[in-house]
Simulated assay, not measured.
Amino acid sequence: MDCIAIDDEPLALDVIEYHSERIPFININSVFTDAFKALDYLQCNAVNLVFMDISMPDISGLQLIKSLPDPPMVIFTTAFSNYAAESYEVNAVDYLIKPIEFDRFLIACNKANAIYKREMNPENVPSGKFMIIKSGHESFKINFEDVQYIEAEGNLVNFVASDKKVVTRLSIKEVLKLLPKEQFIQVHRSFIISLSYLKKFENHQLIVADRSIPLGGIYKQQFIDLLNGNKTKSTS
């Protein structure tokens, strides 16, 4: 898993890096003592897991994770136990009290790895050719091949298909679990597109059906990799 660590105390970061070196599936890509620099990094890079202190200058770890529209998994690391209840309101994987012992650190990392594997497991890819989406008191059958893109607007998500538009109360994360991964990809915090309706793309913009859709920096490399993968399959 690609990870970063955020703590205003360099010694605390040293402990996390030291423990992480003993766990094969944990890759610490960057560490930050400045929470705002970490926030900039998270907005431009795909990260699976964040180790984060809660009590930091300027912005707390809880405030930082709440500010992200599509946050990665987080393991909080702190010297205080009084934040535990609030940490689980943001679906924290675990809550580690300093000084952090390796055995407790390993338990938290194993929890995160289990979640990561469950989300990445190809057995979870939906089968069939359609899905049923509830909108208000009605339910709609939507064929995967008809969906052009999905757009998040506040607490609602719009499924835009060639023959209809269906509005429902789902998150982008929940929607992704309903869609075949070989056909759909998230390209922005508010957009999922169908590759079947992709007409062209530029540096930061896609044309899907007749709609201009932004390509977010954090999603760009994944998008290019998927396109290249599909291209390789079609020529082999």
Rank of each mutant, 00 (worst) to 15 (best):
A79R: 14
L96W: 13
S87K: 02
K66L: 12
L68Q: 01
V93P: 06
K66D: 15
S87P: 10
A79F: 15
A85E: 12
F76R: 07
Y88C: 13
Y83P: 06
D94S: 13
P69F: 12
G61W: 01
M52P: 01
E86G: 08
A92T: 02
Y83G: 03
A92K: 01
P71Q: 08
L64Q: 04
V90H: 04
L96F: 14
K66H: 15
Q63G: 04
L62C: 10
I54E: 01
Y95H: 05
A85F: 13
D70H: 07
Q63H: 08
L68D: 00
L68G: 00
P71A: 05
I65Q: 07
I75H: 02
Y83A: 02
S87F: 01
P72E: 06
M73D: 07
S81C: 11
I97V: 02
D58Q: 15
S55T: 14
F80S: 13
V90S: 07
T77Q: 01
D53K: 02
S60C: 11
N82D: 13
I97Q: 00
V74F: 01
T77F: 00
A84V: 10
I97E: 00
S55C: 13
P71T: 06
P69D: 12
P71R: 03
S55V: 12
S55N: 15
L64V: 08
F80A: 13
A84D: 04
P69V: 11
D94I: 07
E89Q: 15
S67H: 07
Y88D: 12
I54S: 01
L64Y: 05
I75D: 04
P71L: 04
S55P: 03
E89F: 11
Y88V: 14
I97F: 00
Y95P: 03
M52V: 05
P72A: 07
Y88E: 12
V93N: 06
F76M: 11
I75T: 05
A84T: 06
K66F: 12
Y88G: 13
T77G: 02
E86I: 03
M73G: 03
P72Q: 06
D94F: 07
